[in-house]
């Protein structure tokens, strides 16, 4: 554990709490992509199957349970409790274009050819693109509630912080790198660059998040 990794995980935790806070206080899931949230559940479930086989630490176990449970709860809020506030007609990204290639990549790139390891690879590839339906929705509507942008910023910060974490680990753990996680992580972070640009130049200056027409 190093400071970048810890801050990254806390940022990830914060992003989920911000999203829950947004849904509960506005009593609405307007502006949130159900597809992205459903992809995150898929990511967490396929990646964390090892909670039954490998004990890493209490920290690791607790975070995994929290990520699975909280994201399932968000799906429940969107699909049941605040269903009328979710508009599927603007959440139109075709997730099969993500699931198919990620499954193929996982079959090609993995560390061991076992069910658990291939699913782990799948989850890494899928996480790297799971935000696309959300970003696509943002692009379509051209604007976002400020709290939604804070959610995305925290999520992006989590990914960005994993990069110095890997660099730190490379130098402190005798040249160890995880090529699958690093490659997918770089792609994932790159997807946030456009968003970050608008976030830093507008939202943090007190303006509304609006994309140029």
């Amino acid at each position: 554990m190093n400071i970048f990794r810890l801050l990254g995980d806390l940022s990830h935790l914060a992003s989920i709490l911000i999203l829950l806070h947004k849904i509960q206080t506005t009593r609405s899931c307007r502006g949130i992509s159900f597809k992205t949230q459903a992809l995150y559940v898929t990511v967490f479930v396929t990646r964390y199957l090892d909670i039954f086989t490998d004990w890493v630490s209490l920290y690791n176990f607790t975070m995994k349970i929290f990520f699975i449970a909280s994201t399932c709860y968000i799906l429940y809020l969107m699909k049941m409790k605040y269903r009328p506030t979710h508009d599927p007609s603007i959440d139109t990204f075709r997730v099969e274009y993500l699931l198919g290639p990620c499954a193929l990549l996982a079959l090609l790139f993995h560390y061991r050819f076992t069910v658990l390891e291939v699913l782990w690879s799948f989850s890494i590839f899928l996480e790297s693109v799971a935000i696309l339906p959300q970003l696509f929705m943002l692009q379509r509507t051209g604007e976002a509630e400020t709290i939604t942008t804070h959610y995305l910023a925290a999520l992006g910060a989590y990914r960005a912080l994993y990069i110095p974490n890997w660099i730190y680990r490379y130098f402190t753990e005798s040249g160890q790198i995880d090529p699958i996680a690093v490659t997918a992580g770089l792609v994932q972070t790159a997807l946030y660059l456009d968003f970050f640009y608008v976030y830093f130049t507008k939202v943090l200056q007190g303006q509304k998040f609006e994309l140029p027409a």
């Binding site: 990794r5 990646r47 995880d178």
Partner: peptide, 10 residues
């Protein structure tokens, strides 16, 4: 040996 990939990250 690929035991370096212990998946200790979230």
């Amino acid at each position: 040996d690929d035991s370096g990939h212990g998946h200790d990250e979230l």
